[in-house]
Design a protein around this nucleic acid. Sequence first.
DNA 1: TTTAGCACTCGGTCACTGGGAGTGCTAACA
DNA 2: TGTTAGCACTCCCAGTGACCGAGTGCTAAA
Lengths: 341, 341
Amino acid sequence: MLSQRQRLILQSVVDDYIRTAEPVGSRSISKRKDVGFSAATIRNEMADLEELGYLEQPHTSAGRIPSNLGYRFYVDHLIPTVRPPRNEIKALRNLFALKIDELEQMIAETAKILAQITNYTTIILGPQVFGTKLKHIQVVPLSERVAVSVIVTDTGHVEKRRIKVPEGISLTSIEKLVNLLNAKLVGVPLYKLKDTVYEKLREELLRHVDQCEYVLDLAAELLQADPNVKVHFSGTTNMLDQPEFRDLEKMKGILSLFEEGKTVLQLFPLMEEGVQVRIGHENNLEEVSQCSIVSATYTLKGRPLGIIGVLGPTRMNYKKVIGLLDILTKDFSEHLRRLYG
Amino acid sequence: MLSQRQRLILQSVVDDYIRTAEPVGSRSISKRKDVGFSAATIRNEMADLEELGYLEQPHTSAGRIPSNLGYRFYVDHLIPTVRPPRNEIKALRNLFALKIDELEQMIAETAKILAQITNYTTIILGPQVFGTKLKHIQVVPLSERVAVSVIVTDTGHVEKRRIKVPEGISLTSIEKLVNLLNAKLVGVPLYKLKDTVYEKLREELLRHVDQCEYVLDLAAELLQADPNVKVHFSGTTNMLDQPEFRDLEKMKGILSLFEEGKTVLQLFPLMEEGVQVRIGHENNLEEVSQCSIVSATYTLKGRPLGIIGVLGPTRMNYKKVIGLLDILTKDFSEHLRRLYG
DNA sequence: TTTAGCACTCGGTCACTGGGAGTGCTAACA
DNA sequence: TGTTAGCACTCCCAGTGACCGAGTGCTAAA
């Protein structure tokens, strides 16, 4: 268990290091007005903290920097939850006042603003469409054998899919099929669509449509919703401003991660309530072992829809980012509720 | 006018510099087997070429590097059009054999492969949907006052738009409207949709629908196609491999360009036949003043649909890239024709 | 006109140096 | 017993100068 003084010193080191990106020496800490000890005392405590694994020393005659364990303790015990400054809150709220209709665009703008305020990289996942419900399905034939199926959900999301029409299936049977699907499946969540077709529509189809089996498969194909979650990035180049990423190789690793968008999904293994912080190796990817991720879930009608995350160096300004994400996800969810709820 | 020998030397300098990224000295050129002159002679010629503006010297006792004018002459007169090696052609053709249904995905894959082969950044614009024709329009009401309009084109492209339904317009009038639009507008190119509505549908509407003016405006909104051209990037991190972009500031400029996708549209001011090369300042953006862009247009039914471009340092391997783009755009267009033509 | 030779220039690398920041240890102090 | 001042030591870093090699321009000879 850390003493009160050790906690104070650890906090000071982390704060200073976050601010300056330079190893923190005993003298500079003893000079702070909230610390009433001499440099020598601080040195002793720092040596202890290093032994306990909270601090590290880049080389003998240098100051200390926080270890990942140190950051973890700092995040868990040493930061007061802080309300972001007015102007930052305002910048975010202005977004929601804009009345942007398209959700995608809304998300893109949010990512942008958040990246601007934090100076880190923002990653937004979603929205997850699996839980949303079918509102309408339409099939538009393009030529004899090719058609496009269009699915609209209750949140206004549109999924399309090119499909090949099997030989021997006429346009009229497709039309009948689509009518049937619309009559029976509206309101069913997307992830249940396929099962529902096979379970409930079989007899119905037998009655109304010829070549039932073919058509059933076709229907399944029509309804195959795209399971891909969209990934939005912003502020990717902010990483270049961080002194710890001067190294081109590291930088390249991180940037390629952004290019191959889907890989970052591994960084967000679960959608939990509240603000999550993952530090250094707690992330599942080697490329970001020197980064931290602060993330939070946004919801619609209590259902988690997606994730807003901020990626920065482990030396990131946790206080600020956590405060921002906390407010932002709540506002964002509220905004969604007003749009679709 | 350059003498035969000057052309040979200029070509050698550019070739070597493209290969090594190091200033080229007189000795290394005189050693090449296709050059039968001593270093001293080469030096004289190089001094002349510098005076003429085709070469530059980073500092007094260094070799020469090509100027932008030098590259221009090289591209215009000194490279034979070269057929890319078999394995590269094959890598591209494999793509088209994959039978990827979705055009977007197809484009993304193409960009990726091209970036892999060239080791530069690829930028693909399009497809341009303005010229495509309306196949179907659908309106799906989400709630009392909100609906989603979905437009399907003859190329299977789907555009959606959230719309607010003006007060006092009933669902049945909307239904009538949509039926009318479908009956009258199928086959009309997207860019003519709006005009056509106002010109041709006015009387028709007056007869069938009440509150005509409102409805007319609504129709216009429904048909407002998204004019945004999509921009696909791949291989953005390849830029980091180029020795000329070690400088973080330059790098940042270029990478932010990719992040703010739309800005790059300025780099492709026109859609012309054949392969275009723009060198250094010939591009309209300061950020890429040390880059060159090789681009070509892909078409559908003879209509230009979009652009495939490769962005690299001015020291890029023009021979290879030009050859590749030439083949690729032709294959790509042919593939599109098979899919939609 | 071409080439060989030579003096010169300049950037890059390496070893060396001194200064500064910071430490750990010891001994004195409250 | 906990805290502090003092001091010797460590290590990084920036600056310096010497040196090397690649390349040039010029001149004179072939």
